[in-house]
Amino acid sequence: MASYETFAKIYDEVMDENLYLDWLEFTCRHLEKKQQKLLELACGTGILSVELANLGFEVTGLDLSEEMIALAKERITTDDEGLNFVTGDMLELKERETYDVVTCYSDSLCYMPNEEAVQQVFDGVYASLKNEGTFIFDVHSIYQMNEGFSEYSYHYQTDEFAFLWESYPGDYDHSVEHFLTFFVSDKKGKFERFDELHEERTYDVSIYRQLLKQAGFKKIDVFADFEDSEPDDESRRWFFICHK
């Protein structure tokens, strides 16, 4: 799993804010009004959790990174009675309380090392859902892994830091390795370098369906790229709507 120790500090600046609105709109389109208690897996710094709480959901944001959760907790105000952030592992959900909805966005499931780990997450989510609960998640498509990240390079710079992101094919089919390099300024204006490796992999839609059915999900819908349309050969992000 990625550490995010350095990434957490500048995460909000390098993320596209419009993506959070897209995830918010997609989530709300696929939920029933009675579904109010929500668990957001891999919540990061809590931007989407806050937006969901503002709409009336009772939200628990969970993330493996203590640094991310520390930043997320800074977003809580005195008015946010229905918002909570906890440090935790999505691979260990079975002992937690139950929810109407569980979400897992930003291709966070692609960080699972193998199919067994993905199955473990699905099993835990199923156990964490109330009857008739909904699980919504997204993953990178095979096209995105094989073509979209081919020779991908992204640079971002401010007065306080520089961020370099380069992606290369991974060791497995439909996998990628993201090499992140940070140059962060200290109080004296001196820049210090940090390096992180983020590894992601995805699978065919049929494999995700099989793992979800093995977890117990009965009705599974698949859409693409934030739209309510079926994926095609060049879809970049797959969305799964799963009903218990």
Rank of each mutant, 00 (worst) to 15 (best):
N114G: 02
V125Y: 05
S128E: 10
L109S: 07
F122A: 05
V102S: 03
G133D: 10
L109K: 05
D107K: 01
Q120D: 09
T103N: 03
D100G: 06
C110H: 02
S108T: 01
V125F: 02
M112K: 03
S128Q: 06
Y126Q: 13
D123G: 10
E116K: 09
C110W: 03
E116H: 03
S106T: 08
V102C: 11
F137E: 00
E116V: 04
E115V: 03
N114H: 11
T134R: 08
N114C: 09
L109A: 01
E132S: 15
D100E: 08
S108A: 12
D100N: 14
D138R: 03
E115L: 13
N131F: 14
E132K: 11
F135K: 01
A127F: 13
Y105W: 13
G124S: 10
V118I: 15
Y126E: 13
M112P: 07
A127K: 12
T103D: 00
T103W: 00
A127T: 10
Y126C: 12
A117H: 12
D123R: 09
L109T: 07
V118E: 09
V118G: 02
S128A: 15
Q119M: 13
I136E: 07
V102A: 09
Q120N: 14
S108C: 09
V118R: 05
V102R: 07
